[in-house]
Amino acid sequence: MAGPIGAGRLTEPGAGRGPRASTLEDEGVQWMLAFQAGDDDAFTSLVERYQGAAFAMLRRILGPHMAVEDLAQEAFLRVWRSRERYQAQGKFTTFLYRITYNLALNRIRDHKRKPLYSMPRSADGVEMEAEDSVSAAPEEEADHSNWGVIVQRALGELPENQRVAMVLQHYDGLELYEIGEILGISPQATKSLLHRARTNLRTLLSPYREAEND
């Protein structure tokens, strides 16, 4: 559902002109501008539409065992608080993902000394021993019911910036320049980062692919 475009700020910095037509066609941008104009229901629409993407992004960046709901909630609350100063400079997802990525980064830094993909704890609080995530019996794990776990484990093996770039490109469909805006790097650096990420993932996942094909 496309909301009305409110009388919000539509200018891009330094351009002296309005935003690109493609920006205004973005559903999220329309809702955000309507929210800026006073339509609180538009904010509800934003949360309904993008909550899944925010959760998925946080889960893939932070791993399967870290709580992410508080970060997802904070991401949308920051969208709420930015109502007055929001400017339609690109897709709404780029705006939301930048907020979400910064929150994830803060969580990573807070847990710098702990493994990001920490093992779950038993009932008495003892952390279970980590298995060798790459070579542990791929032929036993490579069926479709386990692929989600396998993929998340492989993503967890990547350096943080490669993981984020890969998640944003593959799962969220962002362009190189949008990923670069979020990570604070050039499109060329983003391209290089993605190349290394895909090379590493192929190395990590190929044993499981071969086991499945056997």
Partner: peptide
């Protein structure tokens, strides 16, 4: 093939 396998990760 990498993209196809990555797609097997179901959304949160």
């Amino acid at each position: 093939w990498l993209d196809e396998i990555l797609d097997r990760d179901t959304p949160e």
